[in-house]
Simulated scan of single mutants.
Amino acid sequence: MNMPSLPTGFAALALITAALAAPAAQAADTAPATTGDSCIALSEDQQIVRAGADRDVLLRNGDQHYRVVFTASCSSAVTSRRLAFETQGQSNQLCGGARSELKTDRASCTVERIEPLEATAFNRIARQRSR
């Protein structure tokens, strides 16, 4: 019986492990980061799409795109002239986990979670909402 040498077996195992790990690493690089309860520093270059904003709004912050979901209905976001995110009195910061609020002219709406979106999905949803 012809058995491969021990170093050859380890080399083969290392190559198989590397081949299996590569697709997972590539998927992690291309998937948007999840925000969970983490916070996002908001820039001056932002856009809030509020059409159909009863339960959520779309947010573009620079080149990053998100769906910001509220804990309850936020009907004041639809008609308000002023929209601004605030976290514990601090502006230009947005956090999930009910730590941030969307301030409107008449009320404030608590942010439940922030969901990252790809730019194409953001644009598609924004177009659908504007119809």
Rank of each mutant, 00 (worst) to 15 (best):
A14L: 09
S76R: 00
E86A: 11
S43H: 05
R82Y: 10
C74V: 09
I40P: 06
Q26L: 08
S38T: 09
E101T: 14
Q47R: 14
L59R: 10
F70E: 14
A84H: 10
G97M: 03
Q93T: 13
T17C: 15
G36D: 08
D56H: 15
A84R: 10
A18K: 12
A53Y: 12
G52H: 12
T35S: 07
G89T: 06
S43Y: 01
D29A: 04
L94W: 10
G62F: 09
G62T: 14
T30G: 01
K103F: 08
H65F: 15
V68K: 07
R50N: 08
A25G: 02
I16P: 09
C95Y: 02
C39K: 01
T71W: 02
K103G: 00
S43Q: 13
G89Y: 11
A27I: 04
L102D: 01
A84I: 07
T34M: 07
D37I: 03
A27Q: 11
T87V: 02
E86T: 00
Q88M: 06
F70M: 15
V57T: 01
S91N: 12
R50K: 10
R55E: 14
I48M: 14
I40R: 07
A51C: 06
Q47A: 12
A53T: 12
S73G: 15
G97V: 07
R50T: 01
H65Q: 14
E44H: 11
T34P: 02
Q64F: 07
A41H: 14
A14Q: 06
L13A: 14
N61D: 04
A25K: 04
R81A: 09
D37V: 02
G97Q: 03
P23R: 13
G96E: 10
D63C: 04
T79N: 01
E101I: 13
A53G: 15
T34A: 07
C74H: 01
S80H: 07
L59Y: 09
I40N: 04
T87W: 03
D29V: 02
G62L: 12
A51T: 11
S73V: 15
A31S: 08
T34R: 09
D45K: 13
L42S: 08
